[in-house]
Design a protein around this nucleic acid. Structure first.
Lengths: 358, 358
DNA sequence: GTGCAAAATCTATGCGCTTCAATCGCCGGG
DNA sequence: CCCGGCGATTGAAGCGCATAGATTTTGCAC
């Protein structure tokens, strides 16, 4: 690559000053047509590309929004990739099978950024991320979007002193950052009401480990609906994602042998619901014939499943869009108070609750 | 946001010069532990974040790779989004149903960038992209990856004079840019051989509009295999994506009424294959019972379809990874010649060719 | 042709950081 | 006690662009 031409080169070739060159690009109508053409010709001839670094420095804004995503490789292989790590076998199709939760959110962020004339910087958060890596992104954007629990809170707080930071899909809280969440409680409440009202079920168990804020809220939605109907609460635990299948199988086996199988399993995520449906099938129990199962998230995997999973659909793309939107608004007019927004969810009545023939 | 602290502020607070602050971040081992701590404390106290713009300017590199993606909103709504365009109904699930071709490629680019310590800038190419928009991205990255036919060639050429540019999934050619492609010809050749050798078919029609370089290569793979077996070539046209379903239906109806239905339809893309399978089903023709259908791409949609689509799987993630890899290599050591790489494809024998019970 | 306001262009400076060359401080040897 | 030598630190010069303010040019009325 030859040395990149600069404004100076263009100015010299066009016979004007660098200020004029700069103007030609930023305020084309402010410069006389003849000189504009001269500048543009010179730029074209030289293959000139304005340096975004220099521009960002001079203007104090970068025109970019940052998003901390995940290290897919590490996430799927369990290994943090480095330069020597060979790549996995693509024949393992599992991890690319369906769009993941974050993919959809990221898509939303992209869409909104582009719509508003920003570009998106995507960085990862590997376990080895140093503060320097993080600064590497935070330092080059005008706003930052992060998924919860990917970055230490203190770092987030520090960054948020300089540029707006929005947490995606974080329950409403008071950590001082901007945030977008969905109506976890209302969603599971109306799902539970559906199970009670439409299907007349009374023995409904909530499945999900508590401790995660999202799930707590979903639980309280379940709880609210059950109490309103005068029904007793009941919960079933789940294991960490990795052991989900085995755990579900054991749990189902246990309930079967003890004769304590509930009429419905209201799971706190689609992933859990799918695991329990597999376990139930393995135990020869029909869904929704003998037991209803519902999820939460609205993943495509649940839609493709047979019976199709009744669930609560989160507006994932919208979540990303809203996050980006808050950021861009804040860049323009920084507000005093953190912006918190909650998005509605949508009940997706499909087959696994017993609504249509499976 | 308070004024962002700079090296000067940190230097002042730590009682050192800005050069030392800079050193502390770039060559920590070169500075005495005591001063390093002083600097780090000051930086922490101030909430200092180095400005990537300034750093990029001073260093002449940005540490970012750019990718021109698509304007999803425009692609799915047919409308170019602007600040006033409201957002579509997410209930239209079609467009988020399966990971699209580009999503997987983008994922690959992300993975490789992160693995090598780069961040990714994703920009869109809306129909209204001005040269300035493009420069907006090209000017802030060290290398650029693009999908074919998204940017005018002359602009690409200009950009490639300054930074390495790689075309993803472009057939091998001589346009002077780096490129990654897949073995289109070999893929369709072995698929055709499978149809001939394993299933004993002789009347195999190639489906696909020629004119697109990729498809030309696929056609020649088909053609090669047919000729090698002494069979006659036969082609069926397809319409532009938008009218695919209707066109396929008409075509099938035509062939049925004329009694010219072939034994197999070797489609040039999964999308076409799926459309033809729908059309055949609508006409009451069984696949693979009465006719075999195959695709090319390896989309998830084909996997979920019943019968599952026999196809040629492109290594999409790997495509992105390879592209990014070429770029990053070129940033380090610019080469004279454009790098062209071709990736192998993989035959995915499933049901639609007749291999397993449908 | 002159005068003047508006438009066009230029001069000069700063944005925050990196880096090279130069300086400083400290140690041990002579 | 002085000097050389070496590592730690600093001074200063940019990197490429934007922009306020100064200056020149242009267009126009008189």
């Amino acid at each position: 690559m030859a040395k990149r031409p600069t404004v100076y080169d263009v100015a010299a070739r066009a016979g004007v000053s660098i200020a004029t060159v700069s103007f030609t690009f930023s305020q084309p109508h402010k410069v006389r047509p003849s000189t504009r053409e001269a500048v543009e010709d010179a730029a074209r001839a030289l293959g000139y590309l304005p340096s975004a670094s220099a521009r960002g420095l001079a203007r104090g804004k970068t025109g970019a929004i940052g998003l901390f995503s995940f290290d897919y490789y590490a996430r799927n292989s369990g290994v943090t990739a480095d330069a020597d790590t060979p790549f996995g076998d693509e024949a393992n199709e599992d991890f690319r099978m369906f769009p993941l939760y974050h993919d959809e959110v990221q898509r939303g962020v992209e869409m909104e950024c582009w719509r508003r004339g920003y570009v998106l910087m995507v960085g990862d958060t590997k376990s080895t991320s140093s503060e320097a890596d993080i600064a590497g992104i935070a330092g080059r954007v005008d706003g930052l979007a992060v998924f919860p629990n990917t970055l230490p809170d203190d770092i987030l707080l520090r960054i948020s002193k300089r540029i707006p930071v929005v947490e995606l899909s974080i329950p409403i809280n008071n950590n001082g950052l901007h945030g977008v969440s969905v109506d976890n409680e209302g969603g599971l409440a109306s799902l539970t009401e559906h199970l009670i009202g439409v299907h007349g079920l009374t023995d409904i168990a909530f499945v999900g480990p508590l401790g995660f804020p999202d799930k707590e809220h979903r639980f309280s939605g379940y709880s609210r609906a059950m109490k309103a109907a005068g029904l007793a609460l009941r919960t079933v635990d789940t294991a960490p994602p990795g052991q989900l299948a085995a755990f579900a199988r054991d749990t189902v086996a246990g309930m079967v042998s003890e004769g304590t199988l509930p009429q419905a399993l209201a799971c706190s995520t689609d992933e859990e619901a799918l695991a329990y449906m597999d376990a139930l099938a393995a135990a020869g129990i029909s869904v929704p014939g003998q037991i209803a199962v519902t999820g939460f998230d609205g993943l495509v995997a649940g839609l493709v499943n047979r019976p199709a999973l009744t669930t609560v659909r989160q507006p994932l793309v919208e979540l990303g869009r809203t996050g980006a939107s808050i950021l861009i608004d804040q860049v323009a007019v920084p507000g005093k108070e953190p912006v918190k927004r909650q998005l509605p969810v949508k009940l997706m009545i499909r087959e696994s609750c017993g609504c249509r023939a499976a």
